[in-house]
Amino acid sequence: MAKRQVPKVPGSDSAGSKSRWKLIIVMVIALLAVIAASVAATWFFLANKTVAEQAAGSEHATEVAAPVRQVAIYQVLTPAFVVNFKQDGRQRYLQVSVALMGRDQVAMDALKEHLPLLRNRLVMLFSSQDFATLMTPVGKEMLRQQATAGIQEQAQKALGKPVVEQVLFTNFVLQ
Rank of each mutant, 00 (worst) to 15 (best):
M1C: 05
I73A: 01
A147H: 04
T136R: 09
A80P: 01
N48V: 15
L118E: 03
A110Y: 03
F81C: 01
V96P: 03
A41Q: 14
Q87E: 05
K86S: 09
I25R: 07
A110D: 03
A99V: 06
F85M: 00
Q105P: 08
A80D: 08
M124R: 10
D13E: 01
Y93V: 00
V163L: 09
A72P: 04
K8A: 11
W21H: 07
M142S: 11
A56M: 06
A107S: 03
D88C: 00
V123T: 14
I35S: 13
V71M: 05
A33V: 15
I25K: 05
K112R: 09
G102K: 04
M101W: 02
Q87H: 07
K3D: 03
L134V: 07
G89Y: 10
Y74I: 01
A40E: 14
Q105M: 06
V164L: 10
L174T: 03
L143M: 11
A55N: 09
N48H: 15
R92W: 07
M1R: 07
I73F: 05
Q166T: 10
H60L: 14
Q129S: 13
K49M: 11
M108H: 02
L100I: 06
P10H: 03
A80G: 06
A36L: 14
V9C: 00
T62R: 13
M1N: 05
Y93D: 00
S14E: 01
W21F: 12
S97D: 09
Q175K: 12
I151M: 02
V82H: 12
S58W: 15
N171C: 05
A155K: 06
Q129V: 10
R20A: 10
A55W: 11
A65F: 05
E113W: 07
W43E: 13
H114K: 03
L77S: 03
A155V: 07
K49V: 08
E153F: 15
L77R: 04
M108Q: 01
E153N: 13
V51E: 09
S97M: 06
N84C: 09
K157R: 13
Q105E: 09
S17H: 05
D130L: 01
Q95K: 03
G139C: 09
L77K: 05
S12E: 02
L31S: 13
G160E: 14
L32E: 13
L46Y: 15
G102Q: 06
R4S: 11
D13R: 00
E63M: 12
R69K: 12
Q75T: 04
T78P: 01
Q154V: 10
F81P: 00
K3T: 02
V98M: 08
R4T: 14
V138R: 12
L77Q: 05
A36R: 10
A107L: 02
L31D: 11
A30R: 14
W21R: 09
Y93C: 00
L159T: 08
V6L: 04
K161E: 01
A37G: 14
V51C: 02
A80K: 04
A80T: 07
A99F: 06
A149E: 12
S14N: 00
M1Q: 04
A155R: 04
M1S: 09
A47F: 11
V26G: 14
A147N: 04
V138E: 15
F131S: 00
V28H: 07
D13W: 02
A147L: 05
Q129L: 09
V138M: 13
V64Y: 12
D109I: 04
D104F: 08
V26K: 13
